[in-house]
Design a protein around this nucleic acid. Structure first.
Lengths: 211, 211
DNA sequence: AATTGAGTTAAACATTTGATTAAATTAAAC
DNA sequence: GTTTAATTTAATCAAATGTTTAACTCAATT
């Protein structure tokens, strides 16, 4: 047996990772199972063998890679901290989760934008919608406690998440804007920079100045 | 000759519009030229006849539909108005152009996010990047004139445009957030609502209060 | 009336695609 | 060591896809 450095422990896992990466960079429809197999240095039939079909491979990627933002937000909701602290932590949770699984999120965001979505993508869409509702509740809590200005809650949420989505999803455009290599967009430095920016902006937008 | 209400003046134009709509809702790769031909009630060969290929049809959509945001921004740059007025007008220009050509922009945004882009998509990407630079200059002008706070210029631009992109690109998610039908997302009322929100948020973020 | 040429059609072509098969190889169990 | 099951391979299949072809229509021109 030839040991070429890449232990063959888990060909299934290799396929998942390769497919995720290719789907992210070229789009689900543009990637053939032959592309995936070739990039993973395996036979095409391995995909059918492990997953059944291309579609089920995609489904498996979503099932296993879906970030657990929802649980984090629910935990946050029940914590005894100020509404503003909930917002800042929400920002960090989103940045961390979306940057941490950037390939996956690029794939899902692209598929979410399509009209007729496969069932499993609809599930993610529902989760995202649910998360947005929770964030909206954070803002409303601040309004009711008299520490937040009254704003357009839904659109404030949209702006908050949309900025992060945009940076993850269109990294080549952002890379050019930030004068960095496309891959450097996802550096710790830029995660920090985005976090600081969003907190600063939402602070001016939401927080009522203490006189 | 049968006059069925749809004058056959311009089958070429019909193909362009049908293709744009289908590409927007299902994605370029997922749409076959048979789909386009069928939806436009024509023969497949008409696509080759008028455009040469599926790729060139796509190219033609971009060439003819590309919104002229760039010219508007350059005109704005040379106007004798305050930096804040430039920002508010920029917001309205973007909302108007992106909402006005939503199908087109959904297509282009999706293709822009891919790694290896066809040449004509790269051109759009460059135009977008150039527009972002101009908006950044508006903000810097405000900083230098002492009317804007010092902020993260690039990320402020990203947030501004990212919010609009997000609303156009993920209209089904936004529709559910705003409790409207997906198509109603693009109503005049919501354009207005987004405009008000962005101006309000950027005002708190950028403008130094007059004492 | 005959000719021309753009517009249009149905049929076919060569590839590509997702999926399958049956054999071969490897690993595990006994 | 033999048997058994899991993994991997090469070859093949039917359907789908972008493109081409050759014939046909029909209005405008001569």
């Amino acid at each position: 047996m030839i040991d070429d450095g890449t232990p063959k422990i888990n060909k299934r896992q290799q396929l998942l990772e390769t497919a995720e990466r290719l789907f992210a960079s070229e789009g689900y429809d543009a990637v053939t199972i032959r592309d995936v197999a070739k990039a993973a240095d395996m036979n095409i039939a391995m995909i059918t063998y492990y997953f059944g079909s291309k579609e089920k491979l995609f489904e498996e990627i979503i099932r296993t890679r879906k970030p657990d933002i929802n649980e984090k937000l629910i935990a946050l909701r029940d914590m005894d901290i100020t509404p503003w602290e909930k917002i800042t932590q929400t920002i960090d949770i989103y940045i961390d989760k979306l940057f941490g699984r950037k390939d996956f999120n690029q794939v899902v965001m692209r598929e979410m934008a399509l009209k007729q979505r496969p069932f499993h993508v609809s599930l993610v869409l529902e989760m995202v919608e649910n998360n947005f509702k929770i964030i909206g509740d954070f803002i409303r809590e601040g309004e009711q406690k008299g520490v937040f200005r009254y704003t357009d809650v839904e659109l404030t949420t949209l702006t908050l998440i949309g900025s992060i989505f945009q940076m993850v999803n269109n990294s080549s455009l952002c890379g050019r804007m930030l004068k960095e290599e496309p891959e450097a967009v996802f550096s710790e430095r830029n995660k920090q920079r985005l976090s600081v920016h969003l907190k600063s902006m939402l602070q001016s937008h939401l927080l009522i100045k203490q006189l």
